[in-house]
């Protein structure tokens, strides 16, 4: 059999060099990556890339930096499996393979000029961070901004230094709640859904975006609807194993939708009746 080269194959990678590794928690690290020839990734907030090391494999990771910061991009990676554990062993100067960006990101056009309510649970802060940075860099394009964050305990909180910066900004209302904490914790304790009723918002001017584990969505959506936010103003990012990123391999399929191409960000009406999307 003859082998011929494929130009513009969907599977070919761009070489990315790790310029910095930041330890966030025991299980999460932040990788700053520069593409070969200083190319720009050119992504939308909410999109993801396929990251790989040859010989180990490839995993989909959401981009957690804003496209407004063009010289590098960032990925927050939790060591959850074989490939991510191998990625955690990498040091600055090491290379990774990058494919993408893939998928539909957050609805940037409707978001501009709206009030924005962002609700993140756990690692869900990573994709939302790309949007938060985007908003901070274009702050005047957006209305009121509320950010709600929920996580297990204060130790598992990601980007804590940055969160302090968000908290101190007068043009962002940042609230955070943990499921449990030691006595010296000064913040809220409880589920993230408990924070929603207290947010002062105009439901028709607000677009709500939520990102977190799938168990969280049903409860968060119920609270948002209770606030009077129209269903079409609610967006969420779904987590599936996007193996190929090209809408072919079938792993991320939810009924007739491919999370990698049709999502990962969906509007609530888009998936409300899709069984298996929100369970």
């Amino acid at each position: 059999m003859e082998k011929i080269a494929v130009r513009n194959s969907g599977y070919q990678i761009s070489r990315g060099r790790i310029s910095r590794v930041t330890l966030l928690t025991e299980t999460e690290r932040l990788f700053t990556i520069v593409l070969q020839n200083n190319e720009t990734l050119d992504h939308d907030p909410g999109q993801f890339v396929e990251v790989s090391r040859f010989g180990v494999g490839e995993v989909p990771i959401s981009i957690c930096s804003s496209p407004t910061r063009r010289d590098a991009f960032e990925l927050c990676i939790r060591a959850a499996g074989r490939v991510t554990a191998a990625l955690h062993r990498l040091k600055p100067g090491d290379e990774v393979g990058i494919r993408g960006p893939f998928g539909v990101g957050f609805p940037m056009t409707p978001l501009a000029a709206s009030d924005v309510l962002l609700i993140a649970g756990g690692l869900g802060i990573a994709p939302l961070r790309s949007l938060v940075h985007y908003i901070i860099d274009n702050r005047r394009d957006f209305g009121k901004v509320d950010i709600l964050l929920g996580c297990r305990d204060p130790q598992s909180m990601l980007f804590s230094a940055e969160l302090e910066f968000w908290r101190q900004r007068i043009d962002i209302n940042f609230l955070c709640s943990v499921d449990s904490a030691a006595a010296e914790w000064e913040g809220n304790i409880g589920l993230i859904t408990a924070l929603i009723p207290g947010v002062n918002l105009d439901p028709f001017k607000t677009i709500a975006i939520t990102c977190g584990p799938s168990v969280m969505y049903r409860f968060v959506i119920a609270e948002l609807l209770k606030k009077g936010i129209p269903p079409a103003h609610i967006y969420l990012s779904l987590e599936r194993h996007m193996k190929c990123g090209l809408g072919k391999c079938g792993h991320c399929q939810i009924e007739n939708l491919y999370c990698c191409q049709d999502g990962p960000v969906f509007s609530y009406p888009q998936i409300k009746n899709i069984r298996g999307a929100l369970e």
């Binding site: 082998k3 494929v6 194959s9 070919q12 990678i13 010989g55 290379e95």
Partner: peptide, 21 residues
């Protein structure tokens, strides 16, 4: 089927390929 041939001796180098007959 092989999608890429890779060589990591000098970074993450690869070539996309397809076997035809």
């Amino acid at each position: 089927e092989s999608l890429l041939q890779y060589d990591t001796t000098q970074g993450e180098k690869m070539q996309a390929e397809v076997a035809i007959e």
